[in-house]
Simulated scan of single mutants.
Amino acid sequence: MDKAYKEIAPRLRALREAVGMSVEEMARAAEIDADEVRRFESGQHEIPVSFLFKAAKACGVDTTELISGAGAHLRSYSVVRKGEGLAVERRATYDYKSLAYRFAGRKMEPFLVTVPPKEPGELDFNAHSGQEFIHVMEGRLELTLGDSVLVLEPGDSLYFDSHVRHALRGLDGKPARFIDVII
């Protein structure tokens, strides 16, 4: 998906307006500034999944509706086979695949993420509301979390507060692949 947030932004605004919610009310529900909501709705800025999750919850819809334009319908369970995750462009240099996009009423957002190797000066920092759980499957992952630099090996896990500024990169000239659960 090329610049998926350009497609998501009008759905976000239309949904907010359809439920009669002001920009300020959405900002309070998502625990962010109203100007940030306006930026996300403009289609000119990346939209964090944590915001989409809170916006969908505030509007009483499933996050899949904002991401894909179609609703999730499964309520008892949802199987996503290898290679079938819904591609979500969150960060231009990361590959995100939603692993629960078919399940309605999710309370978390699990992703399969691949992060390429980068030089330390090329890091793409992010901070957003919520919490995250990362479990490394392949490669070595460097995660800069605030002032700390952590190196995670396959089998290692990390749970952290997403409000803390963070950036990721694969090490040893290879991508790192991990499960990322955002709440």
Results as ranks from 00 to 15, higher is better:
29 A>S: 15
18 A>I: 02
54 K>Q: 15
19 V>L: 05
181 V>S: 05
99 L>V: 04
180 D>V: 09
161 D>S: 02
117 P>K: 00
34 A>K: 15
2 D>L: 13
67 I>D: 03
55 A>Y: 11
141 L>E: 09
145 L>R: 00
98 S>M: 10
143 L>G: 00
99 L>A: 12
142 E>M: 13
132 E>M: 05
5 Y>T: 08
10 P>D: 04
24 E>Q: 11
183 I>A: 11
56 A>M: 10
176 A>G: 04
166 H>E: 06
160 F>A: 13
42 S>Y: 08
112 L>W: 15
46 E>F: 03
52 L>I: 10
123 L>W: 01
164 V>I: 10
6 K>L: 08
163 H>A: 06
173 G>I: 13
138 E>F: 06
139 G>F: 07
61 V>E: 07
96 Y>S: 03
1 M>E: 11
139 G>Y: 11
53 F>H: 12
107 K>C: 03
53 F>M: 15
154 P>V: 04
169 R>A: 10
148 S>F: 02
45 H>Y: 14
68 S>E: 11
77 Y>Q: 11
87 A>H: 09
70 A>T: 13
121 G>V: 04
90 R>A: 13
133 F>R: 11
137 M>H: 12
78 S>I: 03
99 L>T: 12
46 E>M: 05
34 A>P: 15
133 F>K: 08
178 F>D: 09
179 I>A: 10
18 A>K: 15
145 L>K: 02
155 G>W: 14
182 I>P: 00
4 A>W: 03
93 T>D: 09
149 V>E: 00
95 D>N: 07
77 Y>K: 08
91 R>I: 14
144 T>W: 01
24 E>P: 04
140 R>L: 00
81 R>T: 05
182 I>T: 07
51 F>Y: 15
43 G>M: 10
52 L>W: 10
142 E>V: 00
116 P>G: 09
70 A>E: 15
170 G>A: 08
17 E>Y: 02
10 P>M: 08
99 L>K: 02
182 I>R: 09
147 D>P: 00
44 Q>W: 07
164 V>L: 00
168 L>T: 05
31 E>S: 14
109 E>L: 13
171 L>C: 14
95 D>H: 10
78 S>M: 02
101 Y>T: 05
38 R>E: 09
12 L>Y: 06
157 S>T: 15
17 E>C: 01
125 F>T: 12
44 Q>I: 02
23 V>S: 01
